[in-house]
Design a protein around this nucleic acid. Structure first.
Lengths: 228, 228
DNA sequence: AAGTGGATTTCGGAA
DNA sequence: TTCCGAAGTCCACTT
């Protein structure tokens, strides 16, 4: 890992073309050849970058300025960095990172709801998780107290796309005579928060919405485990 | 902008919980308080980070190790960085960045297709760009040789969502008697590449697909400009 | 201010 | 390997 602080101008040509006027910035050059150009603001996304794998050719421009040409190995695209003044330049051997361990979000939510389907609607019981259909698995397939099949789509944030997705599942499921013996398959759209537009679309499609309290579910789960 | 190279362990708790075991990494601390933790690999996304605005409290852990607690000002979430050894620490005044100037992608594609609608289908002529509807503007509204209205949705990459979007537009447009005097409004889904699933859904909805050659269109445009 | 759609998205899992 | 959906997405633009 090489870190350079320099006054530089950057030009990118690839999927789009972009330009950064001359200014003082931080250049991070990783050992795989990738380059990140950061300013003192914004979020974690660099102003400009080149994704690995890529190679750097260090040279001199027509004006005699230091110039880096970064080219992608597999994709197309070139990053040209013109350096006016180097304020800092250091290299560091970091070794291979052990990597990030993260705990789940949507997957965990699905697990919790699979264990507590009645929180979605009274009398709901689980038939199976990841119920397969021709266009993909339905998150939860349940049955209600009256024996009707209920398809549940789970999202962290409930937006219009999720309702569309569940609608497609329902169209397909309602053609299955085995699922519709007691009547049409119901749909429940479950999420930690549901956007107004999604709610309206769901209502229009006859799909119920269920706002899920993740923390409460976790609490229920913990309480249950404590019993055993 | 402060840059620290250190052996550190990181724990994040917020929307999810995540952990980074002790290892040598680069810490980038921007003047707005945001922190990026980079390893010598991956892409531009840091292993872990805290988005601005946030504040950093430097302290000492129970074990007497240097500890940074980064807390988000508005959102919830905490990043705890335990530092075992500092290998490098420098600060740099970068000033405000003039910012990235980028040239278009989808917008440019829309402009090009607006100028050359016949590349989408023979005899197609433009009625207007950004044709307004109650649920948002249709990218291009055209008319074919037989006088039928044609709604065009343009994407860089054609995926299932785009077909859904165009479907919603078509449902709405087909209720407009002014547009349907000669018959139902046709739909064309135009993109540089169209995913198989999107293609299948489009076919099911009676929507035509058009794969757009961006470079060829640019070429046509250049050639045209040369005539004048 | 909140919502919506695109991204040089990146990242992970499944087919 | 490729495809597809989710993201602590970020980001710009619209309502």
């Amino acid at each position: 890992m090489r870190i350079v602080v320099a006054s530089c101008q950057v030009d990118y040509a690839g999927r789009l073309t972009a330009h950064l006027p001359m200014a003082k910035r931080v250049l991070m050059i990783k050992s795989d050849g990738s380059v990140l150009i950061h300013s003192d603001g914004g979020s974690y996304k660099p102003l400009n970058w080149m994704s690995p794998p890529c190679s750097i050719r260090e040279g001199t421009s027509e004006d005699g300025q230091l110039e880096w040409i970064v080219t992608a190995t597999k994709a197309d695209g070139t990053l040209r960095i013109l350096i006016d003044e180097v304020h800092h330049d250091s290299s560091h051997d970091l070794g291979v990172d052990p990597g990030l361990q993260k705990d789940g979000v949507e997957k965990h939510l699905q697990e919790l709801l699979a264990e507590h389907p009645a929180t979605l609607a009274d009398g709901l019981t689980l038939v199976r998780r990841e119920f397969p259909t021709a266009i993909g698995p339905v998150d939860l397939m349940c049955r209600d107290a009256s024996g009707l099949s209920v398809a549940v789509e789970i999202k962290r944030r409930g937006e219009i796309d999720g309702v569309e997705q569940l609608t497609r599942y329902l169209e397909l499921l309602n053609r299955d005579p085995l699922l519709t013996t007691k009547g049409q398959v119901r749909g429940i759209f479950a999420a930690q928060e549901i956007k107004p537009q999604a709610r309206v679309l769901a209502a229009d499609r006859g799909i119920a919405c269920a706002v899920v309290d993740y923390d409460a579910l976790r609490g229920m789960d913990d309480a249950e485990h404590r019993l055993f």
